[in-house]
Design a protein around this nucleic acid. Structure first.
Lengths: 374, 374
DNA sequence: GCCTTTTGTGGTAGCGCTACCATGATGAGA
DNA sequence: TCTCATCATGGTAGCGCTACCACAAAAGGC
């Protein structure tokens, strides 16, 4: 049994009891205090970087900490520290692979910071109003909103009105006092388009996302700008409307592939639609990427689980959600002093991930454009 | 200020002080106890799923929890609970969609219980031995093993030998002292096969999973039994070997679809391979489900993100992983008393999810077969 | 010089929860 | 009938830390 040996005789019994309770023998603040010949309070002050500790004392404490390899117990700190932050993560029917990435980041960060995270499905506008009210009443201070919820001005307004802290993950509305964690959607789409152009493609089809989401428009803009920069024509035929779902991607791809003069590349606004485009291409006996290049956006798990694996834009969803949690925590701490939310916007880097779904336009496929399909 | 109103007069001062300390108004276990007219201890018991609470009392407590929207304070729990449990989740190259489901369940439960979860990629047998030793030395008490790791007897043995707690998620080996959370793979495959037969199919192709995993064999057995029960012939042609990957599914499906007398239905051992089969069918201008029925297994996110959405077997992967975490936590608690691991095996229910990838064999497709065999 | 401030420290009382007993109530066995 | 297990429940004492006060000693103000 791990009984602490240096205990004074009179407390031996207490120590034994203590040893029974504590399965782990990690040193506590009391041990450090004993070692440094001061009170636990002083140790606590040193740990928390408070200024009103004499330099000599501080040094003693630090030495003791070093010696005992003391690590503060997070649970105890947050327990004693008072408030427990509670954050709700609302979602409304997003792509499942997106959601799971999303949750991972949030859960991890919340666990790290000892924050309670409540995950709730919330159908936009129909039930969102009442739900938010209930949550705020129930003591929830922060809200994390993935698309499409962060695109709804009413939701954002209601949260700030009821005193909650809202952070959008994704572009969302620019106005308002909510925080946001995002990537440069425009630039990412621009880069991807330029990448495709760089492969030699000139007729490039684009599948637009759900028009109610801000990201869709930004991605489309990025595509347009890159095309214009390269002085390539964008006929309306080559822009197909989608909804971010696999199914809508099928319809849109079908339209693009059915064109008399069909594109040699398709850039879909997300991976689900890109996967659908690959399926539709296969249906027409087109090889991807040799007959047609297909690129996606988001780098969800789907992108690397189909064949060929998709060239896509990696959005650091996990980091983004983790940042959203941190942001709420930060604002919450400052809360009593500054009434108004800082409305921080944080932009994270994206990355173009090249896999196997892109290639230069082949001569054969150029021929095929005139001849009927096999 | 949120002062608790129902306080007796003599404690008003204490209450005020309390209110000052507590920044948040989150309900505590005491509030729930008050509401449920029992002691905090009983509430604690209910929360922790202990069995020795009368059903009536339990219900009262649960109602109170629901009413107050009580969320246990994790910091307090882990502080009071003593030692910090650390669990490693090892994985070796599973299907990506499976893994993400898997992680979600584990992370959530670990976060709920304030358990440190270490997620590690671990190439089977080549590096597993050293890795496990290192982890145990580093203070990891529990291991969660998805397939194919839980199929490796050496890994399981090594963990028990070094004093770790191993829980397999999936069938794994029956012997040994490890825990396991699983579904009845055989029966599930049997049910699905009977479902397909019930639609009127007689020539049914089957894509086998990775032969190194126990589940593959069990699913195949279930298929075989159902076919035999229905007195349908199983020619070797109709059994194609896969590896659980999308790509292997493409190859296997290609083989089945290329048969002179091709099957009117394909039952793939997992969703990735079923999705590949759908893609291959489309490539051959076959409509799913009107020309050919395709069914999967697992109900990963992929199943409902492609079109048509797959009829499949829902395996409650998240719950299973969550249970695995709970199981380790439970064993860990009992540890000092019982040296030997209880080796609990827990079987969870599966469910046949019917979506849009199945239908009866059409007349047209029957004609195509040239000579219907019965 | 006295009386206020400041400053460094210590003591105490919790934070919300659970381990560990103690208790009373029930039932089984003699 | 009385004991002795068994069960549901309550009481108490912490888990490791920090907020809050108390208090002495040092430092300033007149």
């Amino acid at each position: 049994m791990a009984v602490i040996m240096s205990a004074p005789e009179e407390t031996v019994k207490a120590e034994r009891k203590r040893a029974a309770r504590r399965k782990n023998a990690a040193p506590t603040i009391a041990d450090v205090a004993h070692e440094a010949k001061c009170s636990p309070m002083t140790v606590s002050r040193v740990i928390n970087g408070e200024t009103n500790v004499r330099d000599g004392t501080r040094l003693q404490v630090l030495t003791a900490i070093e010696k005992l390899k003391y690590i503060p117990n997070r649970a105890a700190r947050s327990l004693a520290g008072g408030a427990q932050l509670r954050i709700a993560l609302l979602f409304d029917n997003p792509s499942a692979s997106y959601l799971s990435e999303f949750l991972m980041g949030a859960l991890e960060e919340a666990s790290r910071r000892d924050i309670h995270l409540l995950v709730q499905s919330c159908e936009i506008s129909r039930e969102s109003e009442e739900m938010i009210r209930n949550l705020v009443d129930g003591g929830i201070e922060g809200f994390i909103l993935p698309p499409p919820l962060c695109d709804d001005q009413a939701v954002l307004d209601q949260i700030s009105a009821s005193g909650g802290i809202a952070v959008a993950v994704g572009p969302g509305r620019a106005e308002g006092s909510h925080g946001a964690v995002l990537i440069d959607e425009y630039q990412a789409a621009f880069d991807m388009t330029r990448h495709i152009i760089g492969l030699g493609h000139e007729r490039i089809g684009f599948i637009v996302g759900n028009p109610e989401q801000v990201a869709s428009g930004q991605r489309l803009q990025g595509f347009r700008s890159a095309m214009e920069d390269a002085q390539l024509e964008i006929s309306d035929d080559l822009i197909a409307q989608g909804q971010f779902t696999y199914r809508s991607g099928m319809v849109a791809a079908e339209k693009l592939l059915g064109l008399e003069n069909r594109p040699t590349a398709i850039f879909a606004s997300n991976d689900d639609m890109a996967a659908a485009a690959v399926a539709m291409a296969h249906r027409r006996h087109l090889d991807v990427p040799n007959d047609i290049t297909v690129c996606g956006f988001d780098d969800t798990e789907l992108a690397s689980s189909i064949w060929p694996e998709l060239t896509t834009i990696r959005q650091p969803i996990r980091e983004m959600t983790a940042q959203a949690v941190s942001m709420i925590a930060k604002v919450y701490k400052l809360r009593p002093r500054t009434k108004r939310m800082p409305a921080e916007k944080m932009t994270l880097p994206y990355k173009l991930i090249r896999r196997n779904s892109d290639a230069g336009p082949s001569l054969i496929s150029s021929f095929k454009k005139l001849a009927p399909e096999k």
